[in-house]
Simulated assay, not measured.
Amino acid sequence: MKSIKTLSIALLSLFLLGGCELNELDNYEGPNASINGGIYDQETGELIQQDIINGMQIEYTEHGYDNPQIQYVVVKNDGTYRNNLMFAGTYTIRPVRGNFVPVESEEIVVKGNTVKNFEVQPYIRVRNVQIEKQGNKVVATFNLDQTVTNKVSRIGLFAHQEPTVGAPLNAVASVVNFNQVSNDVTQYRLEINLEANSGNLKPGNKYYFRVGALIDAPEAKYNYAPPVLLEI
Rank of each mutant, 00 (worst) to 15 (best):
T61R: 12
N84L: 13
I53H: 09
R82C: 04
R94G: 02
Y81F: 13
V96E: 07
Q57M: 08
Q71A: 06
E59R: 07
Y65C: 03
T80D: 05
V110G: 03
G38N: 11
E43C: 04
L47C: 11
G38D: 12
T44S: 15
E62G: 01
T114Y: 07
I52A: 15
L47V: 14
V73N: 07
N84Q: 14
N117S: 11
V96L: 09
G38W: 14
R94M: 08
M86D: 01
T44Q: 15
E107M: 14
T114Q: 09
V101L: 12
G98Q: 10
V75G: 06
L47K: 13
G98C: 07
I108W: 11
F100T: 00
Q50M: 03
T44E: 13
I70Q: 15
H63Y: 01
M86H: 06
Y72N: 05
N83L: 12
F87G: 04
R82T: 10
V110T: 04
E59W: 01
E46C: 05
L47D: 12
Y60S: 03
I70W: 10
N54K: 13
Y81E: 12
R97T: 00
Y40L: 10
E46P: 06
V110E: 02
T44K: 12
Q50A: 13
D51V: 14
Q50I: 12
A88I: 10
N54Y: 14
Q49E: 04
L85Q: 14
I58D: 01
E104H: 01
G64R: 02
D51E: 15
V109P: 00
N54A: 14
E104C: 00
Q57C: 07
F118E: 01
G98P: 04
V74D: 02
P102N: 06
Q71L: 09
T114D: 03
L47A: 10
T44Y: 15
T80W: 07
P68T: 04
G89I: 05
E106H: 06
G55W: 09
P102S: 07
I48T: 05
N67M: 00
N84V: 13
V74N: 00
T61N: 07
N83P: 05
I48C: 08
G37E: 03
N54F: 15
G64F: 09
D78L: 00
P102V: 07
V75I: 12
G89T: 04
V73K: 06
I39Y: 11
L47I: 12
G89V: 03
R94K: 14
V103I: 14
R82A: 09
T80Q: 09
V103M: 06
G112R: 00
L85W: 12
Y60W: 11
G98M: 10
K116R: 13
K76W: 02
N67R: 00
D78F: 08
V109M: 02
N77K: 04
V109E: 08
P95Y: 05
I52C: 13
